[in-house]
Amino acid sequence: MNSVQYSSKLKELKYVKLPIPTITEGNQVLIKVAYSGICGTDLHIIEGEFPCSENAVTLGHEFSGIVVDCGKDVKNVRKGDRVAIDPNEGCRCCDHCHSGTPHYCDIGGINSTIGIHRHGGWSTYALVPMHSIQKLPDSVSLEQGALTEPLSCLSHGWDLLSPVPVGSKILVIGAGIIGNLWVSLLHLQGHRNVTVSEPNLDRLNYTRNLDTGYDLLTPSQLKINKQNNPNYHFDVVIDCSGFCPAIEEGLNLLGKGGKLCCFGVAPPHGTINVSPYQLYLKEISIIAVNVNPYSTVKSVGFIETLGDRYLNYKKLGVEVFSLNDYQKAIQLLKAGKIAKAVFKL
Rank of each mutant, 00 (worst) to 15 (best):
G120K: 03
H98V: 13
P102A: 07
W122S: 01
G115C: 07
D81E: 11
P87N: 05
V140Q: 06
K135W: 08
C105Y: 06
G115R: 08
R92K: 15
C105Q: 04
G80T: 01
P102R: 13
Y125M: 08
Q134N: 11
Q134D: 00
H98Q: 15
S123D: 11
I114Y: 05
L136T: 02
G109L: 03
R78D: 15
L142Y: 00
I107P: 00
T101Y: 11
R82C: 06
G115K: 02
I114K: 06
C93N: 15
D95P: 00
R118T: 04
I85Q: 05
D86M: 07
T113W: 09
E89L: 13
L127R: 05
E89C: 14
G145Y: 02
R78Q: 15
L136K: 06
V140R: 07
H98M: 15
P129L: 09
Q134W: 08
I85M: 04
D86T: 12
P102H: 13
E89G: 13
H117A: 11
I110G: 04
D95A: 15
A126H: 11
R118Q: 14
D106P: 00
I85Y: 08
L127G: 03
I107W: 11
V140D: 07
P129V: 08
V128S: 06
T101V: 14
R92I: 06
T124S: 11
C91E: 13
R118Y: 07
S123N: 06
A126Y: 08
P87Y: 01
P129K: 04
D81I: 09
I133F: 05
H103I: 11
R78F: 13
H98W: 14
G108T: 01
R82W: 06
T124N: 13
G121W: 01
G90E: 03
L136E: 08
H119A: 10
D106V: 12
H131R: 14
C93G: 00
V128F: 05
C94N: 10
S123Q: 08
H119I: 00
H119G: 04
Y104W: 10
D138K: 02
G115V: 03
V83Y: 07
R118M: 14
V140G: 03
H98P: 03
P87H: 01
D106K: 14
S123M: 05
Q134S: 12
P129E: 12
Q144A: 08
H98I: 15
D138V: 09
P129Y: 10
P137H: 04
H131Y: 14
I133T: 08
G109I: 06
S123L: 11
H117R: 11
P137G: 03
A84S: 12
G121R: 08
Q144M: 05
G80W: 00
V140E: 10
H103G: 01
G100H: 12
L136P: 05
A84F: 06
I133K: 01
S112M: 11
C94L: 12
G120N: 02
D81G: 10
C93R: 15
S139D: 04
S112E: 12
G90R: 09
G145F: 07
Y104A: 11
G108D: 10
T113H: 07
R78C: 15
G80H: 08
I85C: 08
L127M: 10
E143R: 10
G109R: 09
C94Y: 10
L136W: 03
G120H: 02
V83G: 07
H103P: 01
Y125G: 05
I116G: 03
G120D: 01
Y104K: 13
I133A: 09
G108K: 10
